[in-house]
């Protein structure tokens, strides 16, 4: 097979600005998500992801302009998530130029929303974002639970069961974030990634916890993901996209190195 594993940088966007900035290249305006997107496009990223963390209602419309300007400049797939709660939210993002939208809290609260969205726009553009923590004690069978609100609120929902359910409802891809690893740089929760990837027929993106290039290899090789998402190691210039892809290729993973 020659389908390549994907490396996806993810930018947190708030009120139309990149949170924490991106300092790996000489950007005119490192706070402009479009400038950062262009730099990642040129660097050979396989897809881009924007996570809109805007809290205020007034600020929410800024993402549409960011997506529109990005789609004018970057000819690569773009996924947008954060605050996607209605069919109208999805429609506006797709019209602005997003290729896929990721649904998180709304899918947990109302799984049927996934079915409506997939029916209306096609499974290919509906990503369900699953935030989960490993909740079993050491020595017990592995158990993973969905958390919302940035990992603060437990839901009691089994992550693997939830993954199966949203795929049946029409999700075309799953973004699996290990909330117990997010920000730790200790690597993806491979047990979580693999449990979900092996349970569903659709592609899984591993997320949460990347601190080293080897973690990306583990996400694909051991976690059975087909794509890896990372934020800070790229934004802070620790590694370039190309270094990540070269490292993964050297570990025997088929990568796209021509970009």
């Amino acid at each position: 097979m020659t389908l390549k594993a994907r490396v996806i940088p993810c930018l947190d966007v708030k009120d139309g600005r990149v949170v924490k900035g991106v300092n790996f290249v000489d950007l005119v305006d490192a706070g402009d998500p479009v400038e950062a997107a262009k730099a990642y496009d040129a660097a050979g990223a396989d897809e881009l992801c924007f996570l809109d963390i805007t809290a205020s209602h007034e600020g929410r419309d800024t993402i549409f302009d960011v997506v529109r300007r990005t789609a004018e400049a970057c000819f690569m797939p773009l996924t947008v998530g954060g605050g996607v709660r209605s069919v109208e939210d999805i429609r506006r993002l797709l019209i602005a130029g997003a290729d896929k939208v990721s649904i998180n809290t709304a899918a947990v609260k109302e799984p049927d929303f996934v079915r409506h969205a997939a029916k209306k726009f096609g499974s290919q553009c509906i990503v369900v974002s699953i935030d989960a923590k490993q909740v079993n004690a050491a020595g017990e069978p592995e158990r993973f639970e969905i958390f919302t609100h940035g990992g603060r609120n437990a839901t009691g929902i089994d992550a693997v069961e939830f993954a199966r359910k949203v795929v049946e409802l029409g999700a075309g891809e799953l973004l699996v974030t290990s909330m117990d690893r997010d920000g730790t740089k200790a690597g993806y929760n491979i047990a979580l990634t693999r449990a979900i990837a092996d349970a569903v027929p659709v592609p899984v993106i591993a997320s949460g916890g990347v601190g080293a290039l080897e973690h990306m290899v583990e996400g694909i090789r051991d976690g059975h993901a087909t794509a890896v998402l990372a934020a800070s190691i790229f934004h802070f210039g620790t590694y370039t996209i190309h270094e990540a892809k070269e490292h993964m290729a050297a570990a025997g993973i088929a990568m796209r190195l021509d970009a």
């Binding site: 097979m1 020659t2 389908l3 390549k4 594993a5 994907r6 396989d46 499974s123 290919q124 075309g172 891809e173 027929p201 659709v202 592609p203 899984v204 087909t226 794509a227 796209r256």
Partner: peptide
């Protein structure tokens, strides 16, 4: 190969 994911999603030659 039954382990291959559907959709066929991503970059291919």
């Amino acid at each position: 190969d039954a382990t291959l994911k559907i959709p066929h999603m991503g970059w291919n030659t």
